[in-house]
Design a protein around this nucleic acid. Structure first.
Lengths: 345, 345
DNA sequence: ATTATTTATTAAATCGGTTTAGGTTTCGAA
DNA sequence: TTCGAAACCTAAACCGATTTAATAAATAAT
């Protein structure tokens, strides 16, 4: 049966000591304040026996420390974020932190409102954020000085924050290079709007650079921007245009979801497009490996991304209350370019 | 630039009223306590201008209400849970709640520890739980009376809680029936351990019932249990056994992950198994539709699951402090059985 | 024997809100 | 005028922890 819920005062009375003393024991300060070993034992025993759990709201209020971390992403149902979330939670749990999640749905206003509430009302000790902002102004307006912030996946310049992500330029550059080396001359590119977020910009630049390296002229019409809100329609139109009219011989799409819709479009159009062109995607999917022709992909190291993001945030939190100068790291992990050869080619 | 962070007292002083009055305005009790319209306006203006955010820890402490909900699942990176989490967050956000996520990794001890901390220390107002427990004892030991608890996906008898999930028996029964009607005589079944969780039991029972209905004798050797910890190895062995030795003509697997590993095993074995048997899975995947031969699946209505789970929890929270007798609903939504015919058959 | 010091413990202030009980003003009625 | 009732506002208690400052008892020093 469930215990009655004691607070520290009742607990202390039960043992016959002051709540101060219980608090000392609870926070491993018993020795520091010279509590006798015998009393410590007595208190420990009672805490254990009655299953006493100190109220975190009371501690938060007093200590101005919540042991809560905000994880603010566009959409937690996206497997990329879900996997990272799981890693972050795992590491945070070990360090005694809990995670509050929030979805922005790529809405900048919602993002700011959420951050404002998390930071100033909930009092989370730090935030890991995948921003959908274009400019840092509104963020800066709500960020306290020295506030621990880690930008995940997407960078934002002009704000005091660490960032953890992959080298998107590099990944895109390598993949494009691979396509070229495989014989592609006209490579279609499907990007996502908003196009201002840093990974997309970097990926587009990697693509351009690879073309340039190979002496292939960049053709703007081969780049099509897909809008999140009408992904299905946009992909259908873009695929038709690129394959039907522009006669591309390779297609590189800049994210998971677009890749999926492309495959579905191929299926729907019932044409053997995938057998005729090289198809590659940013973000891998376990099921990609089973396709024929196989799909090459730039894979992000999600475990490491989550781990590094938490580590970095934990460091910023620890340094916040010291008088050290805060150093913000920009972590760029290496993506893995997975080349899959179709057995049917 | 960031504002100085005011508390209610400083805010009140700035305006020239008492903090009581600010609190009244803040909580829409100004009229109730007869605060003049003029003063209300003045206070509202100051709150807005200075961007005042009341400390949630202070409110929590005083009100014993956190506006926090615990979402405790086995693994948030599992797309099934991630999608539900996103739905829950969306509805919770509208209602002014935040979500704390925690992963149990199917570990019953971890589950109890987490729940204990969330309920008694963090003070979450309610919990949505996917339990990995076999028996309710340890849960009952930590649950306060009338505590708002919603069991998601997996039921647990003997505990005062609502549950939200699908009718697993029905889904499994229908899918098995479909396989039989498509001509299958020997249907292999891959289940997951631990096999005591309710959806798995129900699905196995649905399978058995469909066989019985069709007058097919149930053969225990056709049912293989896959262990989470060695999923790859187990699936490989099971597929070899069932297809190689038992000569099954259809395979029904009871979850997403197992389905994926099956497909990978088929690929690895480089045999055309999928073309020769009927393959079906519990839980759908967008990419399944693109396979040939196509994969049939029992799809769970994740949006509705998330919505109903939150609704139900919100109801329990609201009724907790009333003197109503608490009624626990057992919600069983209808799964959708998606039959895909392979064009190659 | 008395004072100084150490050892062990606790009362009370504090964090920032909400709420209760009470205190002023103002105004109309007696 | 003077009393009573609205109308409007506020002091102070409270929630449950942590921490500072103080006290009491035991021991050591003079």
């Amino acid at each position: 049966m469930a215990h009655k819920k004691y607070n520290i005062e009742e607990l202390a009375k039960k043992i016959g000591v002051s709540k101060t003393l219980v608090s000392f024991v609870l926070n491993n300060k018993a020795d520091k304040y010279g509590v006798s070993k015998a009393t410590q034992k007595r208190v420990q025993a009672a805490i254990k026996k009655l299953g006493f759990q100190p109220s975190s709201s009371a501690r938060m209020l007093r200590l101005k420390k919540s042991n809560l971390i905000g994880l603010v992403v566009a959409d937690i149902s996206n497997p990329f974020f879900a996997q990272i979330a799981m890693q972050i939670e795992q590491h945070a749990d070990k360090a005694g932190y809990r995670i509050i999640i929030a979805n922005t749905h790529e809405d900048p206003k919602k993002e700011i409102d959420l951050l404002n509430a998390l930071i100033h009302s909930q009092g989370v000790d730090g935030v890991i954020l995948t921003t959908s902002l274009k400019a840092p102004n509104s963020l800066k307006a709500i960020m306290p000085a020295r506030y621990p912030l880690v930008l995940l996946d997407r960078k934002l310049s002009g704000i005091a924050a660490s960032s953890v992500g992959i080298d998107n330029f590099e990944g895109s550059h390598e993949m494009t290079k691979h396509l070229i080396e495989s014989g592609a001359k006209k490579i279609g590119l499907l990007t996502i709007s908003p196009g201002y977020i840093s990974p997309i910009k970097d990926r587009v630049n990697g693509y351009k650079k690879a073309l340039e390296d190979a002496g292939i002229k960049f053709e703007p019409e081969l780049v099509q921007e897909i809008s999140f809100s009408q992904i299905e329609k946009d992909v259908f139109e873009a695929v038709n245009l690129l394959y039907g009219h522009k006669e591309i011989d390779a297609l590189f799409v800049l994210n998971n979801q677009i890749a999926r819709h492309c495959l579905q479009t191929f299926e729907k159009m019932d044409i053997k497009i995938p057998h005729d062109i090289l198809f590659s995607s940013f973000d891998d999917n376990e099921l990609f490996s089973l396709y024929s022709p196989s799909i090459s992909a730039v894979m992000q190291p999600v475990e490491k991304l989550g781990e590094r993001a938490f580590e970095e945030l934990a460091r910023l939190i620890a340094e916040k209350d010291s008088d050290k100068k805060i150093v913000h790291d920009q972590v760029g992990l290496k993506p893995e370019v997975i080349i899959r050869k179709s057995s049917k080619r």
